[in-house]
Computed example of a mutant assay.
Amino acid sequence: MNDPALASMHPTELRATMARMNLSTQTELAKTIGVDRSTVSLWLDGRIGVPRPVAKLLRILSDAETGPSYPGCPDCPARHSVHDVACRARQ
């Protein structure tokens, strides 16, 4: 699987995504995506993985609000604007 948008989501990435979306509680995230709060708790604790479709949805929602994030890019800040095609091409 080469597309990082299709990967599962680690609890650390889930917390960062929640922060980018200005969701400060498990309940807020649960209501936003239509799952139970206890499910979000399991994801954040790492006891069960975030399903790939949910991870992709969260990345899409987060990118829509903040612009995509490209971790590990040595030349740019952690968060890029949507039009930063040159940096995306280096990934």
Rank of each mutant, 00 (worst) to 15 (best):
Y70A: 15
D3G: 02
S81C: 13
T66L: 02
D63W: 02
T32I: 06
P68A: 04
T39L: 09
V54P: 05
Y70F: 11
T32Q: 07
L29P: 08
M9I: 13
L42S: 12
P74Y: 01
L44D: 03
D45G: 09
E28V: 03
L61H: 00
E65N: 09
M21F: 00
C87R: 13
Y70I: 14
A78Y: 07
N22L: 02
V35I: 08
A64G: 07
V54Y: 08
M21Q: 04
L58D: 01
T32S: 04
V82T: 12
V85K: 10
H10Q: 08
A89T: 15
I48E: 12
E65P: 00
E65W: 00
R37A: 09
I60L: 12
S62T: 04
A19I: 00
D75S: 15
R37M: 07
S38C: 14
P11Y: 03
R47N: 13
L58G: 04
D84I: 15
R15H: 09
I60A: 11
H80N: 10
M9P: 11
Q26V: 07
P74L: 03
L58W: 05
P77L: 02
L61N: 01
T32N: 06
T39Y: 05
P53G: 05
V82D: 15
Y70V: 15
G49T: 07
L29G: 03
C73F: 02
P53A: 10
P11K: 05
V85P: 14
R52W: 07
Q91W: 13
A78K: 10
A78H: 10
R79D: 12
S81I: 15
R59A: 05
A5L: 12
N22Q: 07
S41H: 09
T27G: 15
G46R: 01
E13A: 12
P11F: 04
